[in-house]
Simulated assay, not measured.
Amino acid sequence: MILPKSNRLTPAQLAEVTAIVEPFGCGLQPIVGAVRTIYAIVGDERDELMITRIEGLDYIERVDRIQSPHKLMDRRSDLASHRITLGSVTLGEELLVIAGQCTIDPKNPNFLYETAHAVKEAGANALRGGVWKPRTNPYSFQGDVKSLDILMEAHRRTGLPVDAEVMDETQLHLALDAGVHMLQVGARNALNYSLLRAIGRAVADRKTIVLLKRGLHMGPISEFISAAEYIVSFGNPNVLLCPRGTAPALDGYRNHPDESITPLLKEKTWAPVVVDPSHSVGKASYVPACALAAVAYGADGLCIEAHVQPSKGIGDDPKQALTPEVLGETIRQARQLWTLRQPVKTS
């Protein structure tokens, strides 16, 4: 990983460094961070002669060699200084709350419009809404592209940035063309490396954020982080890691709640952690406690399902969506707890 002395390399400098690495079978991938651009060496970076030639350039500060399967996501990476901002919230400086419906009902768009206003009033910073839905049963409602227009109209009415799950490249490009601010990769696609690459390429030159959920089946922490590396390696470091419960389910819960992995993630990666308590436990009455537990473990944000009238929702909303009143109280308590967990500043 190459760190220039200035914010970024000039075109002439980039061409010079590229000419150095190419004879060694390597290439360069710029990663545009909030503070400066760093340059990942794509390929085997162990050749001492190549490194020596790069370090000898007067405009290079240093070359870091991180021996890790996810060297960009590694907390020792220079990307550790990168900050991700969604709307008015910078992750790490304030608790991010994403809230909204599991599934947008294209026949009843007012439910989403009302929900959007309600979650904003409750204190949420962003709106989630399921446009397309992964379903085990092929005859269940799979979502509708018309819902994408409804989601973007909710954004225009409230000003809230929006989050939508995509499951293939067609949905990916439709969402980006519509102006979706955050792309969600669901648990079933968390290890779909072809989709992760496609997303990485599509958002490389954008500020779009990707919310990557943990795979449905319990796997190593490094596997989760490496999945994020697929996206970041194309140049956009705006990735959030989202524990959301795993299989097999814990008796009584929808999944096996995994918010406790947050400290383990933070030991290995700089990426912010945004926990989904709704899918973890799968029952509205359990969600507030799970959300607070996630914050206690150090989560940077929450992704919570909410609906103005859960019983009239579709998808998972009737069983696990919070009402606006409960959401508001959960957010209030979560932010109090988040504040308590911050280090005391000394003058």
Rank of each mutant, 00 (worst) to 15 (best):
L264H: 07
L96I: 14
G315F: 06
K345R: 11
I60K: 03
K312L: 15
Y139P: 04
G87T: 05
G123Q: 05
T18V: 12
L86E: 02
A271Y: 07
Y59L: 03
T330F: 04
K266E: 04
L96H: 10
R53W: 02
R335N: 13
R75M: 15
T339V: 07
M73S: 15
N7L: 15
L95V: 10
S222R: 07
R65I: 15
M182Y: 14
R135H: 14
L240D: 08
E325C: 08
L292P: 03
T158V: 00
R188K: 09
A299L: 00
A80P: 14
L79P: 00
A178G: 13
G27M: 12
P343F: 03
T262G: 00
L151C: 01
E48S: 12
V295Q: 15
L211P: 07
R254L: 02
R254D: 01
I41M: 04
P109R: 02
G301K: 08
L196D: 02
R206A: 03
R244W: 12
V239S: 02
I66N: 07
R201V: 13
I221V: 14
D47S: 01
M50V: 06
A154Y: 06
E121I: 06
I209W: 12
T10A: 06
V119T: 03
Q342M: 12
A284W: 04
Q67I: 11
I54Q: 06
Y297D: 14
R135Y: 13
N192F: 15
T52M: 09
V42K: 10
G100E: 04
C26A: 12
V308Q: 13
K283A: 09
T37A: 05
Q171L: 10
Q320G: 01
S311Y: 09
V185N: 10
R341V: 09
L241D: 01
S226A: 08
D74P: 09
Y253I: 00
S260F: 02
M167G: 06
V180Q: 01
L211W: 12
M152T: 10
I38K: 03
A289Q: 06
Y230V: 04
V281W: 07
R62E: 15
Q67W: 11
I221N: 11
G235V: 12
K266W: 01
L240T: 09
T246I: 02
T339S: 05
A294K: 01
E153G: 07
H217F: 15
